[in-house]
Every structure is written in C-alpha cells, then in structure tokens.
Design a protein around this nucleic acid. Structure first.
Length: 461
DNA sequence: TTGACTCAACATCCTTTGCTACAA
DNA sequence: TTGTAGGTTTCCATGTTGAGTCA
C-alpha cells in the first residue's frame, strides 16, 4: 500500500497512491479527519511531521509531495550551500540549540533580552539548510531581521509586511502578513522561526502555525508562559520549552549586573480621598455580587456582566478611575525629579502606563517623549539622538516594551505599569546590555503606598 | 512615496470572599 | 445530603500595532 500526501490550503490531504485504486486503509493518523463535503481525509498542516512519523512506524510507504514548493525554492536559491556563518556560539547558546535539536527540531527557547536569540536561529538555519520563514510581531523587528540575514547570507531575503509581499527561500514576515498569506505559502518552507513566540497564543495568530506544514519549528521568547494559559497551545503547535535561562543566570556575565530599587510614595490627601471612594465602589460591588477572582478569566465575567448590569459597569469605571489616580500620583512626579537629579550623567528611560502622564513629564522635565501617537519618522529621530548621546533621557508609555530596537541605557524608572511579568522583564531588559565600564544597571520602581498598586507590583516580580 | 485615516487584533483589566440550582 | 457546576451569544476602558484605503 502506498499513501499520497499533498498540501492544500493549510491542510495535509491524505490520499491513495498511484499503485492501487480507492481509499487506502490507514493506520490512525494524528489530527486526520474526513472532510464531510469531499470525503477526503485531511489534517491541519501543522500535523505534517507527526503524520510522517505515524506512517513510518506503521511501515506504510509514502508518496510525499507536501514540500515540493519548498524543494523547488531550495534548488533555485542554491540551498544549503548558500547558507553559512562564521559566528561562534557562546556556550549557553550552543546548549540551547542542542536542546532544540534533541527535541526533534521543535520547541521554544526562553532566553532574556540581549542573550542573542537571533544568532541561535541563524545557526539553526545554517545547520538545517532549508527554506525558512521568520515571523516577527512588528515592522521594526522585520527590518532588523532582514538586515541581519542580508549581512549573514549571500541570498536574497524575501519579505511579507510593511507594504511588501516578496517571497524568497529565506523570508521574513510580520504575524499579520503571515496570517494573511499562510494558506498560500504553507508548503514553501521547511523551517519556521517565531520571534517573540508568546504572541502565537493570540486567537488569530495561532492559525499561522496551524496552516504551515514546516516540520522544523523554533520559538524564541524572553517570557514563555502567559497568564491566560495559552502557552500550552503554543507548545502544541511549536513544541515544548526546550531550554530556558533567566536574567539572573546571565547577569554579571553576559548581561550587566543590576539592582532593583522600590520607592513608595504617599498619595496626597486629595488623591487619597478620591482613591478610597472609587476603590470602595468597586470592592463593595465585588463583595455584594459574590464575585471571586480564583482564576484570571473571572475578571472577564465581570466585564461581560457590565454589558447589561449598570452597577457592574459603574464598578468597573470606578476601578478604572482609582487605577488612574494611583498610577499617576503627584508625588511620583516629584520623586522622578530627584531620581533624574541623581542620575544627571546616566542614560535614563522613564516608563509609564498612560500617555497623559508621558506628556506631562515631557513638559515639566523637557524630556523627549514617545507614545503610540508619535509618528515613525519622529520616533526614529528621537531614538537615534538617544543612541548618539544628544539626548540622555527619554520618556515613553508602553511603546518601548517590545519589538523596537532601543539604544542602550543604564537606568530605568518604572513610574507605572501593569501586573504583567512580561512587561516588567522587557523593561528591565532595556538596561541590561553589558556596560563598557562593567557598571551596574538600576531599575527604580515607584509605587503608591497603600493602594492596589502594591499587589500589582508584587505580581509582576 | 507619504501621511492621515479607519479598522481589527491583541494585551491588560483582580478581592481576601463563600451564592444557587441541580444531579448523584 | 453532598458535591459540583454555573452561563452569555463578545468587550466597562486604554494603549499599541499592522494592514488597507484614499488623497
């Protein structure tokens, strides 16, 4: 018996081979179901590798055409000979890559920002020598990867995203463009790299991984686990976490040593009155309605309830106002003044959660500001002046957390932020590139005393 | 090519407590 | 009596991004 495998719009079609007519009697194959309309057995494309393994175990001979497009692309580009690198991996990078290869060329590497995840992926591309798709969350990262790959390899680099749709044997793509194109190019790559792979947990983005047939899959992130538990879906699509290092494993060695200093400020009497009143409305509603917050999704229940329960809506609005009061407290701004004084000669990034505060700080301390409203040109200008030293400090909302090439700094001030461990790790990562003078980095965390922010702050650590 | 705009998607959003209806 | 699941079928608000459209 002989089974024919083909790729079709994001699925693997399992059909009879040429040797005998009719449907073959198949061993149980992972993910394969019979399409009710056409009567054809097929599976989501990400099952391709598992199907191949199951058929091999059952001793079934296979007529495999799934990656024909990938093979043609490899031949056209002269792969694998065209891929080479002189770069020597550091010891932990080598260990990480070996762990991934031992896991069957599948899985996620969890390494802190600045640990050199890109070079590990490039080395993996050289070792596999097959057509590869690199998927990233932002256009900024798209540019960075394209530059790196063009510097390293002597082949044209394709690009999906930022207004360009050009496929090559080695191609970089945004998650959004990959989502739009996955069905039509799912058979053209044998290896796929997901940078900042935690994004793949999003409802829509996970389809990108489902529709690609690529058997080799590498996920890169600094923070694999997601509060909503969706990292389990990522593990199913990409593979389990194969290797992990924390910031502390590398600090002092390959990353700068650092201190975290927590500063508590009191609310002003007026802020305290308003905060207690608003927070009280929320807490009272939660208590009366008997809502518990046993799991993360319980908050969603409250939000849904607010759709037709005016009291729930009022409670949420009150909570939102209370949050704003504690996060933008007046004395945080006063405290920032003394921190900026103390670090006159250092390179400082100030992080906030709200854009209003960014502009207030920008006005009061004459700091260049970056928010979502800052255009691409102006943003590049500010970051480049920060890089060359014209600016010694910059203030930003959540913009600089991820996916942007931010110049080196040695002092971070978190005036406000969410309870997200990911956000905190990313912000810390902004000051951890090793310093020429071997100096320590410092992160200040400014928190309003006796507010919910104390809980928020401990959650993210 | 660019810039301004809209739209959709994603992420965070969290108190110190014990209800109510139904099935086994 | 005891133990367990409950329910919705999208979304109070703010911030951020990429893609697409149009001038």
């Amino acid at each position: 018996m002989d089974v024919r495998l083909t790729y079709e719009n994001g699925t693997i079609r399992v059909g009879a081979g040429g040797s005998d007519a009719g449907e073959p009697s198949l061993p149980p194959l992972p993910g394969v179901e019979t399409d009710p309309r056409s009567g054809t057995p097929r599976a989501p494309a990400y099952r391709y590798a598992a199907i191949r393994r199951a058929l091999a175990v059952a001793g079934v001979s296979v007529d495999d055409h799934v990656l024909d497009a990938s093979d043609r692309a490899a031949a056209d580009a002269g792969l694998p000979d065209a891929l080479a690198t002189d770069y020597e991996l550091r010891e932990y990078q080598r260990e990480a890559l070996d762990a991934w290869r031992d896991a069957g060329d599948r899985g996620v590497l969890e390494l802190p920002t600045g640990a050199g995840k890109t070079v590990i992926a490039i080395r993996a591309m050289v070792e596999l020598g097959v057509p590869t798709l690199v998927v990233v969350p932002t256009v900024d990262l798209l540019d960075q990867w394209q530059r790196e790959l063009e510097a390293e390899f002597d082949v044209p680099i394709g690009r999906f995203g930022g207004g360009e749709q050009r496929r090559e044997a080695i191609t970089v793509s945004t998650y959004d463009s990959a989502y739009l194109k996955a069905e039509s190019v799912g058979d053209a790559f044998e290896f796929v790299v997901f940078d900042e792979v935690h994004h793949l947990g999003g409802e829509g983005y996970r389809d990108v991984a489902r529709l690609l047939a690529a058997p080799a899959r590498l996920g890169l992130t600094a923070t694999f686990e997601r509060p909503d538990g969706a990292h389990e879906t990522v593990a199913e699509l990409i593979g389990e976490r194969a290797y992990a290092l924390s910031v502390d494993d590398l600090a002092g060695d390959h990353l700068a040593p650092y201190d975290i200093r927590r500063i508590e400020v009191e609310l002003t009497p007026d802020e305290r009155d308003r905060y207690d009143a608003k927070q009280g409305v929320f807490v009272e509603y939660v208590r009366d309605a008997g809502i518990t917050f046993a799991s993360g999704s319980d908050y969603q229940k409250l939000v849904r309830r607010s759709g037709n329960d005016p009291a729930a809506r009022e409670a949420l609005l009150a909570k939102s106002e209370a949050r704003e009061i504690m996060m933008n407290a007046r004395r945080k701004v006063d405290r920032l003044e003394s921190i900026l004084d103390r670090h006159r000669d250092d390179r400082v990034i100030v992080f906030t959660a709200h854009t209003d505060l960014v502009y207030r700080l920008s006005e009061r301390f004459l700091l260049p500001a970056i928010t979502a409203e800052t255009g691409a040109t102006e943003r590049r200008e500010i970051l480049s002046r920060f890089r060359e030293g014209t600016y010694g400090r910059v203030v930003a909302a959540n913009v600089l957390d991820e996916g942007v090439d931010v110049p080196d700094a040695n002092v971070a001030v978190v005036l406000s932020g969410s309870g997200s461990e990911r956000e905190f790790t990313q912000r810390l990562g902004r000051v951890l590139r090793p310093k020429d003078d071997g100096g320590r980095a410092v992160l200040y965390e400014v928190v309003s005393a006796e507010t919910a922010e104390e809980r928020v702050a401990s959650r993210r650590r």
